[in-house]
C-alpha cells in the first residue's frame, strides 16, 4: 500500500471518523437476491511485475449498487476499470483470470470492447464533459454508435434520468464547461445513460464535489438502481454505507470481504474489514 503524506491523519481525526461512521450507518436490510450480471473469476491485474489486483472473485448483482471500498492503492480503481476494459490503453498491463459480462468473457478476442463499453458505461472521478454543448455531450455517444431513434428525445430522457433536465433545459446549446462541478458530473452520468447501458461503473464520482452536490449524486445513484446495475468505487465509507446494497472491501489488491452492506458495516467477518471500517487504519 502506498501512503502519501496527505493521507496520514493524526490519531485524533481517526477516532472522530470512527465515531461518525458508527453513528451514520444504521443497519440496512439485506437486499433481495438478484441474478449476477458481471462475474469476476480469480482476476489478477499486473502492471509489469507489480500485482495491482490479486485473484479477486466476485459477483455483481443486477440492479443493485455494489460499492468497492479500501484504502488508496488497494486496486479498487484498477478492478473497476478492468470491467469495461479501460485498462487496455495502459502499456505493459497484464491480466489473469476472467471477467464475464452476461456469461461472456470480456477478453474473448471476438468481443469488441466497443460493444462492451456501450453496455457498461463509466463515470469518472473528475467530471470530464466534452468542451462542447450540453446537448452534444449527451447525444454524441449515441450518435457515433448509430442510434436510430429520436436523438432530441433521447437527450431529454437521459438528462431527466440524471436529474439535470430542469436545470439545463433552456440552455442545451451552451457549453457544458459553464456548469458547476456537480452539474457536470450529472451530465457525465446522463451521457453514460444515453447509451442505454446495463451497468454503470462509477470511479469515486463524488470525490471532486462539495457535500451538497455529493448528496444529489448519491440520491441519483439510489434512483438509478431501479434500472441499472451500479458498481461504485469510493474511499468514503459513509457513502458506501448510505448508497450501496453490497460492499466489497479490498486491501493490497486482494478482496478481503464482500457481503450485504448492512452486514459488512455491523458484523464484518474479517478483522481487517472491521479495522478499516472503524477507522483504525486507512
Amino acid at each position: 500500500m502506498k501512503l502519501t503524506g496527505l493521507e496520514v491523519r493524526p490519531p485524533m481525526t481517526r477516532t472522530a471518523d470512527s465515531v461518525r461512521t458508527s453513528f451514520v450507518v444504521e443497519p440496512k436490510p439485506v437486499p433481495e437476491r438478484t441474478p449476477s450480471v458481471i462475474s469476476i473469476d480469480r482476476l489478477s491485474v499486473l502492471y509489469g511485475t507489480h500485482v495491482a489486483v490479486k485473484e479477486v472473485s466476485m459477483e455483481i448483482a443486477e440492479r443493485r449498487v455494489t460499492a468497492i471500498i479500501g484504502p488508496s492503492g488497494c486496486g479498487k480503481s484498477t478492478l473497476l476499470r478492468s470491467i469495461n476494459r479501460m485498462n487496455d490503453f495502459i502499456a505493459g498491463i497484464g491480466f489473469q483470470g476472467a471477467i464475464r459480462f452476461r456469461g461472456r468473457d470480456i477478453r474473448d478476442p471476438g468481443y469488441d470492447p466497443i460493444d462492451l463499453r456501450r453496455s457498461v458505461g463509466m463515470v469518472f472521478q473528475k467530471p470530464n464533459p466534452f468542451p462542447k454543448s450540453i446537448y452534444r455531450n449527451v447525444a454524441w455517444g449515441a450518435a457515433i454508435n448509430g442510434y436510430r431513434g429520436d436523438l432530441t428525445q433521447l437527450v431529454e430522457d437521459a438528462l431527466k434520468k440524471a436529474a439535470l433536465w430542469e436545470e439545463v433545459k433552456d440552455k442545451l446549446s451552451q457549453s457544458a464547461l459553464a456548469l458547476s462541478g456537480g452539474q457536470q458530473q450529472r451530465l457525465c452520468i446522463a451521457r453514460a445513460i444515453a447509451l442505454q447501458p446495463e451497468v454503470l461503473l462509477m470511479d469515486e464520482p463524488c470525490s471532486a464535489l462539495d457535500p451538497i452536490a455529493t448528496a444529489r449524486i448519491e440520491d441519483l445513484i439510489d434512483k438509478l438502481k431501479a434500472q441499472y446495475t451500479v458498481v461504485l468505487v469510493t474511499h468514503n465509507m459513509q457513502q458506501a454505507g448510505r448508497v450501496s446494497d453490497y460492499t466489497a472491501f479490498m486491501y493490497m489488491g486482494e478482496l478481503i470481504e464482500m457481503d450485504a452492506t448492512g452486514r459488512i458495516f455491523t458484523n464484518p467477518q474479517v478483522r481487517k474489514t472491521q479495522d478499516y471500517i472503524t477507522g483504525r487504519f486507512g
Binding site: M86, R117, F124, P129, F130, L195
Partner: peptide
C-alpha cells in the same frame, strides 16, 4: 480525461481523435 470519456462511450480511436 477527454479521451477516456470518449472511449468509455464506445468510440473508436479515430472517432475520439476526429471529434475531440
Amino acid at each position: 480525461s477527454i479521451r477516456e470519456a470518449a472511449f468509455a462511450l464506445g468510440a473508436t480511436r479515430w472517432q475520439t481523435v476526429r471529434h475531440h
